[in-house]
Design a protein around this nucleic acid. Sequence first.
DNA 1: CTGAAAGCGCTAACAA
DNA 2: TTGTTAGCGCTTTCAG
Lengths: 335, 335
Amino acid sequence: MVGIKDVAKAAGVSISTVSRVLSNGEYVSDDVKERVHAAVEALQYRPNRVAQSLRSQKSQIIGLIVADIQNPFFTAVSRYVQDAAYENGISVFLCNTDEKADKESQYIDLMHEENVAGIILAPTHQSHSSINRIINLHIPVVVIDRQVENTSIDSVYIDNTAAAYKLTLHLLENGYRKISAIIGSGSTTGKLRYQGIIQALYENNIAADKFLLRFVNATLNEGYTSTLELLDSDNRPDALIATNGLLAAGAFRAFRERKISIPDEMGFACFDETIWTALMDPPITVISQPTQDLGRTAVELLLNKINDPSNAAREVMLKSTLIPRESTKRNGQEK
Amino acid sequence: MVGIKDVAKAAGVSISTVSRVLSNGEYVSDDVKERVHAAVEALQYRPNRVAQSLRSQKSQIIGLIVADIQNPFFTAVSRYVQDAAYENGISVFLCNTDEKADKESQYIDLMHEENVAGIILAPTHQSHSSINRIINLHIPVVVIDRQVENTSIDSVYIDNTAAAYKLTLHLLENGYRKISAIIGSGSTTGKLRYQGIIQALYENNIAADKFLLRFVNATLNEGYTSTLELLDSDNRPDALIATNGLLAAGAFRAFRERKISIPDEMGFACFDETIWTALMDPPITVISQPTQDLGRTAVELLLNKINDPSNAAREVMLKSTLIPRESTKRNGQEK
DNA sequence: CTGAAAGCGCTAACAA
DNA sequence: TTGTTAGCGCTTTCAG
C-alpha cells in the first residue's frame, strides 16, 4: 500500500506538505505543488479515506435506508440518490429494512459505527424512535417520503394526500362510485393517501366503507389476496386504488384470475409509474411520483446540513402527477 | 462520542482488556467480562468501525458494482446481496456504472480509498482492465453474471448460452422461423446469449440474418426504436427475443404501437422474470434467472476469499429456467 | 489473565 | 511557505 509518506519521500517534502497540496493547495509554492502531483501520479497514490475519516471525524459516506429496494419507487429514488452522491464523490450504503423496526435500528447502529456523514431515511410508521436515535447520535438526516412533525428535521416528500384525492376524484368523474383501496400499512404515506381518498369520497357524499378501504402489508401477495377478497365479496367495489407498485401487481393478478374486465367492470389505478404500467392491457392510470427530483433534493438537503449543521431545516414538498390512462376510462365515458 | 476509553474507565479496566472482551473474549476472567459488558450496555458503547478498519486493515464493507440498479435483474441481485451481507454484519456500497468504463474505474478507486473488504463486480465487456486493477490492488473480488477467462478469479454466472439456446429452440418448436433478437451490447452476457441463439438457428438449418440479430444499448428506448425498425422493414421477423427486461419493455411498447398481435403475428420472449411479465397481455415467456442464488453465492464466495485469500478461486454456474407462457404459443399450436 | 505502549494513515495546530 | 508533532479510536504485540 502506498501512503502519504511514500509520496512525501518521492517528492522530497514532508507529509504535511503533501496533505496540504492535496486538500486545498493553499500556501504552497508552485514548484512543490508540481513535484507532489508528479509523485502522486507516479506512485498512483490514493488517499486512504478511512484514515481521513478517523482523523478528521468527517466521512464521505451517506446511508440510504429504505423499506425495499425492489419496490419500484425506492429503486428509482435510490438510483437518483446515488447519481447525486456520485457527482459529489460520496459513496452510499444501501439498506433494506422490510419495514422491520429491528432491522432499521440495527442499520442505524451500523451507520453510526461506520461514521457516516449523514443518513437519508424513508421511515416506516414506527420510525419515531429511529429518528430520535439518529438525532441523538448527531448524525445529519433527511427524511424522505414523509412529513415529520418535528420541525427541526429536513424532509422531502410528495403531496400524498392531494395526490390520492386527485386520483379518487378522477375515478369519481369517470363514473365509479364504489371505490375501494388497498393501502400499504407499513409506511406513513399510506395513511396520508387514505386521508386523500376519504376526503374525496366525503365531498362527493359517498359514505366511507371500512370493508373497501384496507390496510395491508405492501407486498405483491397481500395485494393479490386482498383484492381477491374484495372481488369475491357480495360487496364488490367498482373501482380499486393500489397505493404502490407491488400492491398494484398483486391486484392485477387477481383481476386476471377472476377475469375482471377493466375498465368496464372495474376501474383500476395505482401509485408509482414504472416501465410496465403504460404497457399493460389496459394501460394503467397512475400517480407518477417525482422520484428523480426527490432523490436529488434529498442529497442536496443532506449535504447542506452536513456542511453546516446550523442550517435551518427545510421541508420540501414535491408535486406528483396524475397520468390518466385506459384503466379508469369507463366505456365511452369521457371525462 | 463514547469511546473504548470511557468503557475502560467505567469498568475499571484497561482499554486493551475491553478490546479483548469485545473481540473474542478469550483469556479474560468472567468477572471482568461481566463488568465490561455492563459498562458497554450502560454507556451504549458501539465500536468505531473506522478506527477498527484503520488499525486492523480489515473492513466490514463490500462494494457492489452493477450497470444499473433499475435493470430488474440487478435490482433483484442487489437485494439478495444486501440480505446476505446484512446477515454477516457487512455494509454494502452500491454503484451504478451505466456501463461506462470511466465510472467503473472511478468507483473502483473509491472502493480502494474506502478500504473495502471486497468487491462484487458485474462487469461490462470492457472491464478487463478494471478486473486487473482490482487484482493489483489486492482487493478480493467475485465477478457475477460473467465467466472470466482468468482462472484465479471467483465468479458466479448463469448458463447464458444454454439459456438462449433453450429459448430459441422453444420458439422454433412453436413454429416460429424468422427469429430476431435485440441484444444488450454492453454486457458480455449479450454475446453469450447471441451464441446460444445462433447455435439453435444453425442446428435447425436457419441461416443467420445479421439484420435480425441486433446489438443495442440495454435501454428501454433502444429496445423500442430497434424493434420498430424490425417491424417496419420488409424483412419482418415472426418472433423476437429481448435479452433483458429493459429491452423487453421497449419492444413491447413497439408492438403496442404497431398493433402487433402476439403470439400470432409475432412470438415474443425475453430474459428476466419480473412481477409484471406474467401479467402482460399475453403473459410473456421468459428465462428466469436465479437472482437470489446468484446474490447469496456471490457473497459467500467473497467472504471466503476475504477470510482466506489463499483459497482457490471457484467458478459457480447457476441454471436458469424457461417459463413458457402465452407469448410464444402460436394459435392452437401446442408444443 | 491484564496493562502499557506502539502505531494504522492521515490532518491540523503550532513552530520555524 | 514548509516541517514537526500530537493525536483520531482502536488492535495487538510484549511484558508483567
